[in-house]
Design a protein around this nucleic acid. Structure first.
Length: 720
DNA sequence: CGGCTCCCTCTTTTT
DNA sequence: GAGGGAGCCG
């Protein structure tokens, strides 16, 4: 392969980045400006031209999807698998380091990774143990507190006493939680990163080893790095190993989990001799779409400043459909899809993506698609390895692998019910707490010392030997049979079979699928070392939750959250739920900083579209069992209106509901979603209107008295 | 101890 | 709306 295949497909700025000298490089890459391409070509350039061994390359991303794509593209460009190269997520790489150096990291060899749900349950138990009332000390908040500290690299001992009682309690919880995890050999997501950082920090010989090994570090989505990830990069680089960081401050959407946009600014300061390259030429979208994105993001104050350009044509206008309710919204989207993929059009379903702010919004779309026989695929949501029955089966396996895994012990000790109830468990927990033992050990002691009544003791003994026997029996089996065996002896299968009906059936099928996941599991000695297959599989399950459901191969409409759409592109994008409170989400709409993050999320959504952007919102949305009347998203106003073409209401509109005319009505200022004040009924929101001129009537949903129709001329409504 | 019902809360995004 | 928890009864 010659240099031209690496450089020819690049523009000047991209080429500058790819061929830059071995110094720190910061690539500020706008959406659709060829970010991944630059990374991939940089790797090829280093290996093929600069003579760097693939063994010396470390490439880090945030999602498994992005890592997989990078690996594939490097392979395609270099026409050979990049052997020895480390390509992975921050969490995956941290995990790899901890597996390789578990002794130095102070972990048991069979340590397991817990996901946020496990962490939550764990915290709940810790709170109970500390006798803190859940109502006053919500486990969610504890989780947030602990993860935020870990993301900043702070251990409980390093938290200075602020004198604040609540803060002191949270530190207590943090300590107790960490002790419980350590005892059980459990590592949460934030802990993976923090421990991997501490490992290198406290073991100079290891740090030196990796600095010798890695000649180049490349980081994707750099704007998403948190404090500890940034510190880890700095530490590993040590000012010697060049870091090639690619990022876009306008696409920073993970502030809520500790990501710091400031890392982009710090980079040029902390990595001396840093070269900055800007990629502002967009190859993805029409000019209309880019203008919309630029118009929107302009409203953010905190920006490095960057404007996307294109040589492309204006393309089609953005469509805005104001639906009557969320079902009408879904109906419109489904019919639009049928129209665009129908005869005479060449759009494939897979080129059509529906984005939404929160996972719960997918359901209505799914129903609309099912109704019309449209195949679809949902990304994210409840993923395979997060399903209850799968986690049950995995918990058995984890307990078999590591008897001290308290989280798994609690999960399955009485599932299916085997006569080990709350009382018995309370005795075991007390014992474990007093002696600082795992539940497994406490159970053993309780039996020896006859702390349990005869019946309970029998049940506990039965459970312990069940796990022990299984451990012996499966030791020599292939992975898939290990999984199958565990499900059978634990009676999980039986349990779910008895549940019967559709639900149980689906669960059994999922368990079957888990067995086949086991037989298809790709054990990579390079990645997993001498880790037993089963343990490697369990780690894989925790780190890669898997897809929601996917009929791989079939031509499907794509449904996903705005967050998971990052890094992807589609010819047609529908951004649904463009309503105040939904998007921007009500939890984030009030605080300026968080609103800016929502806006960046909107920017990400818009810039996913190549040819056609469709925005939809609903005037009424059924949420949490009640109807909500949300005004249109403020983001809609920030997109230059000449780019948008309104689409009329659909057929689901009830008779007399002439919402389409509201915009031109009366003084021209009253719009659906507008807040108004009535001197008798108080405050309310305009739901719709009908008629014109003197006979114009508006429907207003008042906060105190509910929805009312008013004749506009006499209503005396004031806008708020 | 287990299973049932009712009621209550909690609602964002992900490794 | 759904899942989880509390409370009750067998």
């Amino acid at each position: 392969m010659d240099v031209s295949s690496i450089l020819d497909p690049l523009n000047d700025a991209q080429r500058d980045a790819v061929t830059s000298p071995p110094a720190p490089v910061l690539v500020l890459a706008g959406a659709g400006s060829g970010k991944t391409r630059v990374l991939v070509h940089r790797i090829a350039w280093l290996c093929r031209v600069e003579g760097v061994s693939p063994y010396g390359v470390l490439a880090v991303t945030f999602t498994n999807k992005a890592a997989a794509e990078m690996r594939n593209r490097v392979e395609a460009l270099m026409q050979t698998p990049p052997g020895g190269m480390w390509v992975g997520t921050f969490h995956g790489i941290a995990h790899r380091l901890l597996r390789a150096h578990w002794v130095e990291a102070g972990l048991p060899q069979s340590f397991q990774i817990i996901d946020s749900e496990d962490q939550f349950r764990m915290l709940r138990r810790v709170l109970k143990g500390l006798e803190l009332d859940e109502a006053r000390w919500p486990p969610r908040q504890a989780q947030w507190f602990i993860n935020a500290r870990k993301d900043e690299g702070i251990r409980p001992g390093a938290i200075t006493d602020s004198g604040d009682y609540a803060a002191q309690q949270w530190v207590r919880v943090y300590s107790a939680y960490q002790a419980a995890c350590d005892r059980a050999g459990l590592v949460d997501f934030a802990e993976l990163l923090l421990r991997a950082y501490e490992l290198l920090r406290d073991r100079p010989e290891l740090l030196a080893h990796y600095r010798r090994r890695f000649r180049h570090i490349l980081v994707d989505e750099f704007q998403d790095t948190n404090t500890i990830q940034y510190a880890w990069l700095r530490l590993l680089s040590g000012g010697e190993i060049p870091v090639f960081a690619v990022g876009d401050d306008d696409q920073s959407i993970y502030g809520w989990r500790g990501a710091r946009i400031e890392n982009i600014q710090s980079f040029t300061r902390d990595f001396s001799g840093c070269l900055t390259v800007r990629l502002e030429e967009n190859y993805r979208s029409t000019r209309t779409i880019l203008d919309a994105a630029n118009g929107l993001i302009r409203n953010n104050a905190e920006r490095l400043g960057k404007t996307l350009r294109t040589h492309g044509d204006a393309g089609d206008p953005i469509l805005l459909y104001v639906a009557y309710n969320e079902r009408d919204e879904a109906r419109y989207v489904a019919e639009k899809l049928l129209e665009m993929t129908g005869e005479g059009n060449h759009l494939a379903r897979s080129e059509f993506a529906v984005l939404y702010r929160s996972n719960a919004q997918s359901r209505v779309f799914e129903e609309a698609f099912v109704e019309r026989g449209i195949p679809y695929r949902v990304y994210g949501g409840l993923r395979f390895f997060e399903r209850a029955e799968i986690k049950d089966a995995l918990a058995y396996l984890r307990l078999i692998v590591n008897h001290d895994d308290d989280a798994s012990f609690e999960r399955v000790v009485n599932r299916p019910t085997r006569g080990i109830g709350e009382r018995t468990l309370a005795i075991l927990r007390d014992r474990a707490r007093e002696r600082e033992l795992s539940l497994w050990q406490a159970a053993g002691e309780a039996l020896v010392e006859h702390l349990l009544a005869a019946r309970a003791a029998g049940a506990v003994r039965g459970f312990l030997s069940l796990i022990e026997d299984a451990a012996v029996r499966i030791a020599a089996l292939p992975l898939a049979e290990q999984i199958d065996h565990a499900m059978t002896v634990s009676a999980l299968k039986e349990h779910y079979e008895k549940e019967g009906a559709e639900r149980g059936q689906a669960r059994i099928e999922n368990l079957q699928e888990l067995v086949s996941a086991g037989s298809n599991f790709n054990f990579d000695p390079e990645l997993h070392g001498d880790l037993p297959r089963l343990e490697a599989f369990l780690a894989h399950a925790a780190l890669e939750a898997g897809e929601g459901q996917g009929s791989e191969g079939e031509d499907c409409v794509q449904l996903m959250t705005l967050h998971s759409a990052k890094g992807l592109e589609f010819p047609v994008i529908v951004m649904s739920g463009m309503e105040q409170g939904v998007f921007p989400h009500r939890m984030s709409a009030d605080e300026p900083g968080r609103l800016e993050e929502e806006r960046r999320l909107c920017y990400v959504g818009i810039t996913r579209a190549q040819r056609q952007l469709i925005l939809t919102c609903a005037e009424t949305r059924r949420h949490y069992g009640t109807d909500q009347y949300n005004p249109p998203s403020s983001f809609l106003r920030e997109i230059p209106s000449e780019l948008i073409r309104d689409v009329r209401y659909g057929t689901m509109r009830p008779a007399g509901f002439a919402g389409g005319g509201v915009r031109e009505m009366g003084d021209g200022e009253l719009r659906v979603g507008q807040r108004v004040l009535h001197n008798h009924f108080g405050e309310g929101i305009v739901l719709g209107a009908e008629g014109a001129g003197r006979s114009a009537r508006v429907q207003v949903n008042f906060e105190n008295v509910g929805a009312k129709w008013l004749v506009l001329e006499y209503a005396g409504l004031q806008q708020i």
